[in-house]
Design a protein around this nucleic acid. Sequence first.
DNA 1: CGAAGTCTTGAAGAGCTTCAATACGCGTGG
DNA 2: CCACGCGTATTGAAGCTCTTCAAGACTTCG
Lengths: 264, 264
Amino acid sequence: MRNCVNLRASFAFIGAMKRTEEDLRLINAFFLRLEQHDKLRAEERGALLDVIGPVERLPGGASLVRTGERPGASTLLLSGMASRFRLLSDGGRQIVAIHVAGDFVDLHSFLLKEMDHDVATLAPSAIARVRHEALEELTRNYPHATRLLWLLTLIDAAIMREWAVSLGRRTALERMAHFFCEIHLRLLAVGLDGNDTFELPISQVTLSDILGLSVVHTNKQLQDLRARELIVWNGSTVRLLDRERLMKLADFDDLYLHRRREPR
Amino acid sequence: MRNCVNLRASFAFIGAMKRTEEDLRLINAFFLRLEQHDKLRAEERGALLDVIGPVERLPGGASLVRTGERPGASTLLLSGMASRFRLLSDGGRQIVAIHVAGDFVDLHSFLLKEMDHDVATLAPSAIARVRHEALEELTRNYPHATRLLWLLTLIDAAIMREWAVSLGRRTALERMAHFFCEIHLRLLAVGLDGNDTFELPISQVTLSDILGLSVVHTNKQLQDLRARELIVWNGSTVRLLDRERLMKLADFDDLYLHRRREPR
DNA sequence: CGAAGTCTTGAAGAGCTTCAATACGCGTGG
DNA sequence: CCACGCGTATTGAAGCTCTTCAAGACTTCG
């Protein structure tokens, strides 16, 4: 690979970095996510790995970056959960994305430069930063890996579109069912689902800000889903009791997640 | 430029193409749009121009691509207006993006491969296709131009996020005011606004599908905006009577349009 | 000239928000 | 250790926002 030396040179700290087994396991979530969509060549894996900063652990509710800031790095979420949201002048809040392990949470700040929303963890999480200079170098030397990173932002956008469809045209109940279907499939992709059961470490307040509903109504619709024996959600674990019926209720079609593995 | 010959070779038809003055003027909307965000070097302009297929003219309501299809090219909108939308099983429709002259309407299909929504013109429009092979070649040889194309998709996503905020947390009136503010600034960027007056060739039905409202309610909120002497909209041209007050009503902040010109 | 699309208005009712109050679990400091 | 505060979940009731249904006027177009 041309310029491989340059790449290393601009991130001397990384070259020196020893990763623990545990850190490598965490970072693997990201590769799992990428390889869900296309094959990576060994040198691409290497180049990407080189670019990932040290693993950091954060508590839930930690702010990663705020509106108006110009971060010098983007954040990879390796475990836990994070949200991106806009605060409104009337005190309201709309969550515009939920991220799970393996997601490149704010990759878009690499090119947008200035943040137009906030990012925060929703639960204790492990993250790693990737400096924007390193990403730029990557775009010069690894066009295919670049396209895959671009793809990740395109899939985020596709999810965003689906949320807009939910917010604009689905009832509260359908919307909620749709969200559970989506998060289930996204966790499945990175191996965090077992038997239609997964961890969802968020409160009903957070869910309201995802669905664009009041907390009261969120609670009532949730009871409805429970009464229909579609889901169980005590504390932090969700169990989908009848995925078929849930998907039907939500009018769910997984096309927008673009899960197919193919050359990109 | 390395591989410049390859690039030409793979699009022999382009090399032979003679552009009329009018076509070049139309294509310029795209460059205007790109250069709003960063400078382009002459060779990048050339490479991009080479990749743009012949200009085609379409009537309003023409379908460009449908859900489930795998287009071999992406569409540049050079004049007119287009929308991207999802059709729901109950017959409902949610528009997830509006595009104006200079927008790369479905650039995302380059990497997503399979369309998860429909695209259609809203008015008589001029378009040009860019083949995906040509885009791939571009990603290999012009990393900076690639980043700018990526940026366009990121700004589309930023707009999408803002729409989600509107759909989730703004009232019908605020939402409508917000939309008028946005479209005004976007048309301004490509020189299609004169004195807070611009063409908006869409019906109230279409506006409803943008705002996630019923036509009846859209009509009533529109009357409200008119009664407050904020906008005039007869037939096809919109005039903003008091941009300041309109922006205040909408809680509008143009940050998400990322209009600043800077190195990307 | 009829058909189809658009804009408009009124009225009834569904869906959702807001307000208010209770209960529960958790961690903290007295 | 318990009291307290805080965040969370829950429930009932009132009321507002928005949808749905229905109908009329207007324009465009074949």
